[in-house]
Design a protein around this nucleic acid. Structure first.
Lengths: 231, 231
DNA sequence: CGCCGGTTTGAAGCCCGTCAATTCTGGTGG
DNA sequence: CCACCAGAATTGACGGGCTTCAAACCGGCG
């Protein structure tokens, strides 16, 4: 097990950076490192919150369940991102689940330490407040998209999000490979429909596929499906 | 113009209460009171944020526009509630619009004062962080609902939300009267469909209507349409 | 080779959005 | 007090976008 896989440089995540001077040493002393594998459940909707998590390595999906065999993926988290923060509201119960999509190293901070940090580290509190404000904006934007946009637009949105979050490889392909099941669950549709949309987009030479990788050929065309306010 | 219409007792809103000692006096000195009428636009999506607002009286809807003649209502705000806080993220641009549904008195706090308050008043910052955390949870719950629930469920959810937010009168009717246009826009559907669902609910003696007022006869039946996780 | 999870494709149908026509209501002015 | 009008509520007909169900296909691996 290589060291680089587990050692956080403490510069990549919100919690580690939101403080001054000796803050990082404090974090270093209070974190735990967890190693989790593809398919593992990190925490489950409805269970008590005992701490917050930060992804050092790997990919994790945050999802909400719905009536047997249906789920909406709220977000994908990659290295540097915080998860479990959704449990910080009134009720200390997770409103979402987190499942590992690619073997991951997770930094775990226990809730008591985290909360006492908020008391003393005002920079952290402020950063977290800003973070939530941004997350709320993003969530409400997506709320509108899911409610009013047609499926094709949501698929387009999904692809653009994936490119933004995971970047592209040398050839321009989006640098992640997910089951279309999961991509569909993010777009809020079934995987059959998701596939059909990908097919259409390929027919229109807007995207290209090589195995599971997707190349966005024409971003403007893709954006056309997401027209929002005509004025 | 009665005094009671405009005087905030400074005990009802987050901003006024999140501080100690002489905090309320500071707020009193820095706020402005605005009187707005039904139909007025308080702020518009895409315009710069210059301050935050608190509703003292009246009802306001927070909405996001979509391709000409379509909008999703994110929330209704009544007395004591903060609006405009969605502009507190990275970009100082409103991601939503706010429109008056019932003549309102609004307390306005300019952004510079608000931000300097955050610097000095850590109780406020912490309260705001918690507030955002809760708002995010609610938003993501609704995200799932809009994505996966059928219209009937969303209508049920809308009615329950209205009852929760506005309470009921002596006879048990929900104590607010909105255009079904707006209720539909909250449920994420058209007003024709919304009406049909109301009709069905009446046929099943789950609700009753008197004018624009709605009485929920059987909350359990209503909740049945919102079944989420069957274990 | 044959199972197996995932992908692809086809066909059927219905939920729900759209359009259009009619009724209802509240407000306004004669 | 009533006629009148605009906006809202109500209702019906229609069509299509998506979901659902089911089955064929495919690549990998024991």
């Amino acid at each position: 097990m290589k060291k680089s896989r587990t050692e956080c440089d403490l510069r990549s995540c919100l919690f580690c950076t939101a403080g001054k001077d000796d803050w990082q040493a404090v974090v270093r002393a209070n974190r735990k490192i967890l190693h989790v594998k593809k398919g593992d459940l990190i925490f489950a909707e409805g269970t008590p919150v005992t701490g917050v998590y930060f992804v050092y390595k790997g990919i994790v999906k945050i999802h909400k369940q719905w009536a047997r065999h249906k789920q909406l993926i709220l977000n994908f988290a990659r290295s540097g991102e915080m998860i479990g923060y959704r449990g910080l509201g009134e009720e200390p119960i997770f409103p979402v689940s987190a499942t590992v999509l690619q073997d991951a190293a997770i930094c775990y901070i226990e809730l008591p330490f985290f909360e006492s940090s908020l008391e003393t580290n005002h920079i952290l509190t402020h950063a977290l407040m800003k973070f939530f404000a941004n997350a709320l904006q993003a969530a409400e934007k997506r709320m509108r998209d899911l409610a009013l946009m047609d499926v094709k637009g949501r698929v387009a949105e999904t692809l653009l999000m994936l490119e933004r979050k995971f970047g592209t490889d040398a050839a321009g392909f989006i640098d992640v490979s997910l089951k279309q099941q999961d991509m569909a669950a993010y777009a809020g549709t079934t995987y059959e429909t998701f596939f059909r949309m990908l097919h259409e987009l390929k027919a229109e030479t807007i995207i290209e596929q090589k195995g599971k990788r997707i190349l966005i050929l024409d971003q403007n065309q893709l954006t056309r499906f997401i027209q929002v306010t005509p004025a």
